[in-house]
Amino acid sequence: MKTVLITGCSSGYGLETARHFHAQGWRVVATMRTPHADLLPDDSRMLVLPLDVTRPDSIAAALERSGPIDVLINNAGLGLFGAFEATPMATVREIFDTNTFGTMAMTQAVIPQLRARGAGVIVNVTSSATLAPMPLVAAYTASKTAIEGFTASLAHELATFDIAVKLVEPGYAPTTHFAANGEARMRGLITEAYAPFAQRFFDALSTVQAVTREQDVAEAAWRAANDTTGRLHYPAGADAVALAARRVA
């Protein structure tokens, strides 16, 4: 039985991915800052653990309790909408601490056990904002684009140990409540000068029909974890797939 450790499982992509891997018969270590075991199946193949990816002690404690793993899915992340001009640098650093440095820290902590075993997969969840620029998410996009470059380079570095490193790139997913989850962080980031532009952008988003569902991301993560072809990019959701095809073209 294989084991997957997934970060950021309290809602959205992480929660659905944990459920999906469990349904496929895997042992799942579902981690989140504040554990909610009632969200997931209660059986011997599901272990819910506290984990804050910005704290080395929390990472170490979670890995000690999880036992050996076969796949790491770095899904934990913070969202941010707002005009970059109005975004405090402290907020930018907060976004990078989780989205970028948290992913790197988890990856670095897991590599030794995978290298010793000569097998394993690391899946990093980014965003379709890395495939096509969007306004009002400059800091968020930067944090995810950094992980795209990090993952592409690391894939070469770890291939010599038969460790695969993959990217899952979700599209726009309105049901994940991306903005609502960071409401306090985003308060005041749409200033009066940017309000008309922001309203036009939000109006345009509301008409988008090809969007991403949580299940799309779970299925993409599953494919990435099990694909042995050496593929790096796994767009998730109809909109992300279309953007990825345009990038290739």
Rank of each mutant, 00 (worst) to 15 (best):
residue 92 V to N: 04
residue 92 V to W: 04
residue 92 V to C: 12
residue 92 V to Y: 05
residue 93 R to W: 00
residue 94 E to N: 12
residue 95 I to H: 05
residue 95 I to N: 10
residue 95 I to R: 07
residue 95 I to D: 03
residue 96 F to V: 07
residue 99 N to K: 03
residue 99 N to V: 02
residue 100 T to C: 13
residue 101 F to C: 10
residue 102 G to L: 06
residue 103 T to L: 13
residue 103 T to R: 04
residue 106 M to L: 12
residue 108 Q to F: 02
residue 108 Q to P: 15
residue 112 P to S: 06
residue 114 L to G: 06
residue 117 R to M: 04
residue 118 G to H: 11
residue 119 A to I: 06
residue 120 G to T: 08
residue 121 V to A: 08
residue 123 V to P: 15
residue 124 N to Y: 02
residue 124 N to W: 01
residue 125 V to I: 13
residue 125 V to D: 06
residue 126 T to D: 13
residue 126 T to I: 10
residue 130 T to I: 09
residue 131 L to A: 07
residue 132 A to H: 08
residue 133 P to Q: 05
residue 133 P to H: 03
residue 134 M to D: 08
residue 135 P to L: 01
residue 135 P to H: 00
residue 135 P to T: 00
residue 137 V to S: 11
residue 137 V to R: 14
residue 137 V to I: 15
residue 138 A to W: 00
residue 138 A to D: 02
residue 139 A to H: 02
residue 139 A to G: 10
residue 139 A to W: 02
residue 139 A to T: 06
residue 140 Y to E: 00
residue 140 Y to S: 00
residue 141 T to A: 14
residue 141 T to I: 08
residue 141 T to P: 15
residue 142 A to T: 03
residue 143 S to A: 07
residue 143 S to F: 03
residue 144 K to L: 00
residue 144 K to I: 00
residue 145 T to R: 15
residue 146 A to G: 07
residue 149 G to H: 06
residue 152 A to E: 12
residue 153 S to A: 14
residue 153 S to M: 07
residue 155 A to Q: 11
residue 158 L to W: 05
residue 158 L to T: 09
residue 159 A to C: 03
residue 160 T to Q: 15
residue 161 F to N: 12
residue 161 F to C: 12
residue 161 F to P: 15
residue 162 D to N: 15
residue 163 I to K: 15
residue 164 A to T: 07
residue 165 V to F: 01
residue 166 K to Q: 09
residue 166 K to V: 08
residue 166 K to H: 07
residue 168 V to M: 10
residue 169 E to A: 04
residue 173 A to I: 05
residue 173 A to Y: 03
residue 173 A to Q: 05
residue 174 P to V: 04
residue 174 P to G: 02
residue 175 T to A: 10
residue 176 T to N: 14
residue 176 T to M: 14
residue 176 T to E: 09
residue 177 H to C: 11
residue 178 F to K: 15
residue 178 F to N: 14
residue 179 A to L: 11
residue 180 A to I: 11
residue 181 N to H: 15
residue 181 N to M: 14
residue 182 G to H: 05
residue 182 G to P: 10
residue 183 E to T: 11
residue 183 E to N: 09
residue 184 A to C: 09
residue 184 A to Q: 13
residue 185 R to S: 05
residue 187 R to W: 02
residue 187 R to T: 11
residue 189 L to H: 01
residue 189 L to V: 02
residue 190 I to A: 09
residue 190 I to M: 14
residue 191 T to K: 06
residue 192 E to D: 15
residue 193 A to M: 10
residue 195 A to T: 13
residue 195 A to L: 11
residue 195 A to H: 05
